[in-house]
């Protein structure tokens, strides 16, 4: 079969279609253009195809490793220290109302 058809087959079996990209974008709170949606569908599919190489390995008895540290119980004594203060914390805020951060009306 010519190379082209392999490529076509790959595109057809895409892991992530536009709809899924939109769903993930919503979860990620990212507004995407239609062009970006199409682009991400292709790129993420290609990356996931590659990533699935992990499936070659049998990991039945392998523990997941979230980090490599040999430590636990990094604890702090319960002492209160001075805070940063309202002015300082609001310095970087894009919008404020008095002592508050300000956002458009939140509707549940």
């Amino acid at each position: 079969m010519p190379r082209f058809f392999f490529w076509m087959a790959e595109v057809m079996s895409k892991k992530i279609d536009a709809e899924l990209v939109k769903k993930v974008a919503k979860l990620s709170r990212l507004e995407l253009t239609e062009t970006e949606v199409a682009e991400f569908a292709n790129q993420l599919s290609a990356i996931l195809d590659y990533v699935e190489k992990m499936e070659q390995l049998d990991t039945t008895d392998v523990q997941p490793l979230a980090h490599c540290l040999p430590i636990s119980n990094c604890l702090r004594d319960d002492c209160a220290k001075p805070s940063l203060g309202t002015e300082k914390i609001l310095e970087n805020a894009p919008d404020t109302d008095g002592d508050f951060f300000k956002v458009p009306k939140i509707l549940d």
């Binding site: 805070s83 914390i89 002592d99 951060f101």
Partner: peptide, 16 residues
Amino acid sequence: SCAISFGERANSRVCP
């Protein structure tokens, strides 16, 4: 280490 608060000035008991 911010102190637990109730009724303080808004955004005063906060840190990075």
